[in-house]
């Protein structure tokens, strides 16, 4: 489904700040995979996701989505295939626009926008229904400005926005990290619910080891711009947090298990 070959990214090349962040990374994602991604601060997790959707260009390597090389496409052209939720709840929504308007913008992801009305009456019904399944009472707030919602509510909305038009790949970058534990749990369960209902393929970065084990069918661990551990299926289900910490110590370059691993 998505294949990454020898992907490389260096920030600020030729300066004192030069930093090789992604280093000949290879990854193959099959349709239906729900992969959790763990790794210390600065391991390159966010950079990998940003390279996939084209926030900035890669220096080398290929990104192949459903048979097409996309590494040279601008971000806005790739967007039709990717749904994204960011760590910062402010990043996924337009604060001054209504909840319904935000959803309508997302409903047209990757579509040519024309002069027809930005939101149709029948869409509202769809949005109301979808929001009602969240059980957060958001279905009654369609006309509220997004800026009035809490961080958790905004993340739930962003999650719906990312999946309203079914993406080929859903990219979640620590999308519950800014939420209190209770809300994080709610949003994580919503994530599971949406991914299984729509049978999505997803990458989810998290610093919560337990969540990384409990969710998804595959887990990868990153360090210094590369994947150092990749496990799936029953073997993954059997993992314990201690196992992951030990593995990280064994496999990572330098090998000191860091608090950063735990966020």
């Amino acid at each position: 489904m998505l294949k990454i070959e020898n992907l490389t990214k260096t920030f600020d090349p030729g300066t004192v700040n030069e930093k090789k962040v992604i280093n000949r990374l290879n990854l193959q994602i099959s349709a239906g995979d729900f992969i959790t991604v763990i790794g210390g601060n600065g391991a390159g997790k966010s950079t990998m996701l940003n390279l996939i959707c084209g926030v900035y260009p890669a220096d080398g390597g290929k990104i192949i989505l459903a048979g097409n090389e996309i590494q040279d496409m601008p971000e806005y052209k790739r967007a039709k295939d990717f749904g994204r939720v960011f760590q910062d709840p402010l990043m996924g929504t337009a604060a001054n626009m209504q909840l319904a308007e935000n959803l309508a913008l997302a409903f047209r992801r990757g579509k040519r926008r024309g002069l027809s009305w930005g939101i149709l009456e029948e869409e509202r019904e769809l949005y109301r229904k979808r929001l009602a399944t969240f059980g957060l009472g958001l279905e009654d707030r369609l006309n509220d400005k997004i800026g009035l919602l809490s961080g958790g509510q905004r993340q739930a909305v962003t999650l719906l926005m990312a999946t309203l038009k079914t993406p080929k790949l859903l990219l979640l970058d620590e999308h519950t990290a800014a939420l209190d534990p209770n809300t994080a749990e709610i949003v994580l369960n919503l994530t599971d619910q949406i991914i299984s209902e729509q049978n999505l393929t997803a990458l989810m970065v998290t610093h919560n080891m337990q969540a990384a084990i409990d969710h998804g069918n595959r887990l990868i661990m990153m360090d210094k711009g590369n994947i150092i551990y990749d496990v799936r299926g029953p073997e993954k289900q059997k993992l314990k947090v201690e196992d992951l910490l030990r593995l990280f110590q064994e496999l990572s370059v330098g090998g000191s298990v860091s608090d950063s691993m735990l966020g």
């Binding site: 806005y76 967007a79 994204r84 337009a94 626009m97 913008l105 926008r113």
Partner: peptide, 25 residues
Amino acid sequence: GTEIGSIIRATGNNEAMVRALGQNT
């Protein structure tokens, strides 16, 4: 109020989001 107009308003709010929604800012 149209699709184009809405995405222009969104650009003033959050450019990163607009690109993520497939529009050239």
